[in-house]
Design a protein around this nucleic acid. Structure first.
Lengths: 102, 102
DNA sequence: TCGTTTAATAGCAATATTACGATATAATGA
DNA sequence: TCATTATATCGTAATATTGCTATTAAACGA
């Protein structure tokens, strides 16, 4: 019913469609890498809720989690973040200069 | 609980978080402007459903609807699209070159 | 080994989203 | 004026999302 690109854009943006996940990404970026518990502190949602949001971002491939003993260290996946950005730019970069509509 | 920027990014991306709305934007771009009925034809969802998706995009300011007799002509709002892109780029353009994590 | 710490999962309630048929509204043309 | 066309809105069912508590699992240290 929709093109692969349309589904892809929807899948990506859906992941960003909740402020908690935006906050997670921004915190991971700020501190380079981060264990789950810090995010619970930082963001103020319960541990299972944060864990669930991390799962969604991980499933999309935007972040990775590495087990470090009892902790899990999360960080942004450089390659996939780049690929995502390419897809998003393809969609967002519309040339509207010659547009003349109602 | 979240920053204004985080809520803003979530609000924008939520609008793109459904393939029908991505398809609407792409069709509006392709044909420059478009009346609602054409989108119903093009996308294949019912007229009320398309109308609802249009409403969400309009509410966010990304598209405008101009009444043209019995029809409504929709088009992408150039200024707001640009503003949205600036916000998105601020969020997406992370410098990950020096990143070295787990 | 056993308790502690950390994260994931299960289960569930509240809310939001999506889609549709039915109906209302608005504008035009006969 | 009245039928027609085009869109918006209402009401509603099905599904998805969000967030929590309780529990499980995994790893380490005493």
């Amino acid at each position: 019913m929709f093109t692969e690109q349309q589904n892809e854009i929807a899948r990506i943006t859906k992941a960003f469609g909740h402020p908690a996940r935006v906050a997670i990404i921004q915190h991971l970026y700020k501190v380079n890498a981060c264990i789950c518990g810090d995010l619970v502190q930082e963001i103020g949602l319960s541990q299972p809720t944060i864990s669930q949001h991390l799962k969604e971002l991980k499933h999309l491939g935007l972040i990775r989690g590495t087990v470090e003993g009892p902790r899990v260290c999360y960080c942004i996946d450089k390659d996939n973040w780049h690929k995502m950005k390419v897809s998003m730019n393809e969609f967002l970069d519309l040339d509207l200069s010659n547009t003349d509509c109602c």
